[in-house]
Design a protein around this nucleic acid. Structure first.
Lengths: 224, 224
DNA sequence: GCGTCGATTTCGATA
DNA sequence: TATCGAAGTCGACGC
């Protein structure tokens, strides 16, 4: 990893065209060849960048001034004109063991698939990722009387999710083997607008308690 | 801007829980207080970060080892245990003049508004950002025979865009002064699923050649 | 301030 | 390898 602090001017021609007037910035060159240009605000998004794989060629001038041309695999180019280098250092970082995450939508779906009864009494799971022509429904369940229920699961329930479920329901209700199919929108948190839209479409909203579900899933609590 | 290269272990508790085992990484502290942890690959996304506004408190130990606790406004915490500092430097960057872009959706809309005939022969523009109760339609045009056409423009055409246009059409077709209104979904690239959904809704898909449009817009080609 | 929407989104899983 | 949906999305603009 190479860190350069310098006055620079940057032009990008690729998926769009962009220009960055001269100013002092951080130029970050990673071991994978990627280059990113950071200013002193915005937590993580650079002003300009080139994703790997890409190739960096340097054309040095006097006084440490140089033009760097970074060419991406799609032919996009990032041209960096460096005029005044304040800092330049390289560092060996080695391989990173990687990040471990917990608490995403996949896990929520997993837990609800294991415990469909938390959505409604007597409900059973038919299958996860039930396929339709426009994509898979998160869960297909049956209620105590055998009626089909399509369940859409989100971490945060917003309008998009209700739209998505509406599309699935429209299609599934054309299938005589399934119809009538009810819709359930399950999320850790459901925005008021999403609730209103769901109500208007006859879709039931269920707010899911992730911690409680995770507790049910705790192996130490399993007695069977 | 402060750059630290050090062995570190990171734990994040906030919107999710994440753990990062010890390894050598770049810790980037920006003037706005934001902190991000980078390894030596992935173009620009940090492994972990805290967005501003947030507060950094350092608890130093011997040999430069320390624990940094970064607390966000939502109460989320990023705990960084630093054990071996290889580099530590600070730099004054000043204000950035900012990025100038060309080729985003706004520009595409501008070009299509100037050249509605590229969407259909004899088509004319009624207006851009035609207002409806649920938001503005990108373009309202009329075809050669005077029929109304609502045009939704995206850089990349996906299902969401078709949904959006469908809602507009539903409303506009209730207006006796406009109805019947046809729908056109225009984008540089349209995903198969979006095409299927659009076809099902009777919406026409048009793939737009941005470079050709920009060429038409080239002042040197203007003879009038 | 929240809500909506675009993004050189990036990233990961899946067919 | 394309495609599709999620993201600790972020960030900008409108109300």
């Amino acid at each position: 990893m190479r860190l350069v602090i310098a006055d620079c001017q940057v032009d990008y021609i690729g998926r769009l065209t962009a220009h960055l007037p001269t100013a002092t910035r951080l130029i970050l060159v990673k071991a994978d060849g990627s280059v990113s240009i950071h200013n002193d605000d915005r937590a993580y998004k650079p002003l300009n960048w080139m994703s790997p794989p890409c190739k960096l060629s340097e054309a040095p001038f006097e006084d440490g001034a140089a033009t760097w041309t970074v060419t991406g695999k799609d032919g996009g180019q990032l041209v960096i004109s460096i005029s005044n280098v304040l800092h330049d250092s390289s560092h060996e970082l080695g391989v990173d063991p990687g990040l471990q995450k917990d608490g995403v939508e996949a896990h929520l779906q997993e837990l609800l698939a294991e415990h469909p009864e938390t959505l409604g009494e007597g409900w059973t799971l038919v299958r996860r990722e039930y396929p339709t022509a426009i994509g898979p429904v998160d869960l297909l369940c049956r209620d105590a009387s055998g009626g089909a229920i399509a369940v859409e699961i989100k971490r945060r329930g917003e309008i998009d999710g209700v739209e998505q479920l509406t599309r699935y329901l429209e299609l599934m209700n054309r299938d005589p083997l399934l119809a009538p199919v009810r819709g359930v929108f399950a999320a850790q948190e459901i925005k008021p607008q999403a609730k209103v839209l769901a109500g208007d479409r006859g879709i039931t909203c269920i707010t899911v308690d992730y911690d409680a579900l995770r507790g049910m899933d705790d192996p130490s609590l399993r007695l069977f």
